[in-house]
Design a protein around this nucleic acid. Structure first.
Length: 151
DNA sequence: CGTTTGACTACGC
DNA sequence: CGCGTAGCCAAAC
């Protein structure tokens, strides 16, 4: 698919991906970056090495104008934390929105990816967009708030 | 123009 | 584990 597009086009693509993240789930800058093919090819494990920092730039542009069609608050860093300055107004807004969607933070202000991490978009959508399927952020099946007994 | 600075990550002590 | 560092490239200084 396309080589690395100009920044404007790149942002549009990133925003399209972010729009796929369902309410009540989170993704990371790195996970999004790994979906986008880079001109220099892919890693040994099949994923592109696109600089996740650009994804951060794209998110910064959104939160600035607070485009309501883009759930920018669902994008956090690989440590499971909000990546904005902790004291900033924007960080507070992001945290409030995530809490409102039922996402919890542990004592270290981290989100548990095993419970709220996005597993990526539908494969059909990726094919259509010419993107890689990302690795799931979950290392084990999500155990809901209360797990169900099978007898 | 050279420098500095990022909503980042992976890796090594 | 936690913290420091190197590597990334575009944008702002």
């Amino acid at each position: 698919m396309m080589a690395l597009p100009d920044p404007e086009t790149f942002n549009l693509l990133v925003w399209d991906i972010v729009r796929q993240v369902p309410e009540g789930q989170v993704t990371t800058f790195g996970q999004i970056a790994s979906m986008i093919p880079a001109p220099e090819g892919v890693d040994s494990d099949g994923y592109s090495r696109l600089v996740p920092r650009w994804v951060g730039d794209a998110m910064n542009a959104v939160s600035w104008k607070d485009d309501k069609t883009i759930p920018w608050h669902r994008v956090i860093n690989s440590r499971g934390m909000i990546s904005l300055p902790p004291e900033s107004q924007t960080a507070a807004l992001q945290r409030a929105r995530l809490r409102h969607e039922g996402i919890e933070f542990n004592g270290k202000e981290q989100v548990d990816f095993d419970r709220w991490g996005w597993e990526g978009p539908e494969m059909a959508w990726c094919d259509e967009m010419g993107l890689y399927m990302p690795k799931s952020l979950r290392s084990r099946p999500a155990d809901g708030p209360q797990q169900m007994h099978l007898f």
